[in-house]
Write a protein that binds this DNA or RNA. Structure first.
Length: 246
DNA sequence: GCGACAG
DNA sequence: ATCTTGTCGC
């Protein structure tokens, strides 16, 4: 199993990372509505960590947007490329996520990631960063409001309220299930906010979190488990690391 | 200066 | 993110 290293020139300090964000933020495309919800393909990406072993596992799971059936999936394992710093999450997740996306056998269509896009201290969160680097339409669906404020949306699925940075709307708190805590949706790249909300609702017929996120989360955790087990057990060929049967 | 803070 | 048992509910 090859391991993704830290890219050459990857920022080593918070200062450098913030400078990269300031430089790339102008490339975000905001005047496209994005793919039609319920059509084509939607891909979820997620990452799991084992800091002690210095391991990162990323997963990309492609779903048919109409049926939500899994069409394809891929994983990648790498080294931790950056510590977790609020506002700099992208530098921790992106290298391995890009590797997983590269391994997909088909185009990903719209990408849905954990975390934020324009709802970010410098308006350039993970979803925007990933979009600018790949050129793909990307949205961010987060589980927490980060540093932003919002008024509780109505209790019914579909209700939403502005996610605010002061007076600026940077995303929306969206109720995906009746009476359940909302998720926080923001634009990443090449998708409108309204369309991002519609996609999120289309991906949540049963659970609070999008099927894309749930699928990618389960897969990257499994990939991390396998990688950690192989790291402990010494170098072995992928062909001989099948999971024991019962 | 202090606390809070996506994953 | 990750560490972790039982438990309430469909």
């Amino acid at each position: 199993m090859t391991t993704v290293g830290v890219p050459a020139g990857w920022p080593a300090t918070e200062e450098e990372a913030r400078a990269v964000q300031d430089e790339l933020r102008g490339r975000v495309v905001r005047d496209e509505p994005g793919p039609e919800p319920g059509t084509g393909r939607v891909t979820g990406v997620d990452v799991a960590y084992d800091d002690a072993l210095d391991l990162v596992a990323a997963a990309a799971v492609v779903l048919d947007a109409a049926t939500l059936d899994v069409v394809a999936e891929a994983t990648a394992v790498g080294r931790v490329s950056f510590p977790y710093v609020p506002g700099l999450l992208a530098f921790r997740e992106i290298p391995t996520v890009l590797a997983a996306l590269d391994r997909l056998p088909c185009p990903p269509g719209l990408v849905v990631c954990d975390g934020y896009g324009l709802a970010h201290p410098r308006r350039f969160g993970l979803a925007s960063h990933l979009g600018v680097l790949t050129g793909l339409p990307v949205i961010g669906v987060a589980k927490n409001p980060f540093t932003f404020t919002y008024d509780d949306p109505g209790a019914q699925r579909g209700c939403s309220a502005p996610l605010l940075a002061g007076a600026e709307e940077v995303g929306r708190a969206l109720r995906t299930r009746d009476g359940v805590k909302p998720v926080f949706v923001s634009v990443g790249h090449r998708v409108s906010l309204d369309n991002a909300l519609a996609h999120t609702l289309s991906l949540t017929p049963r659970y609070r979190l999008p099927e894309t996120t749930r699928r990618a989360d389960a897969l990257c955790r499994r990939a991390l488990r396998d990688a950690a087990r192989n790291a402990r057990g010494g170098a072995q060929e992928p062909s001989m690391r099948q999971a024991p049967t019962s």
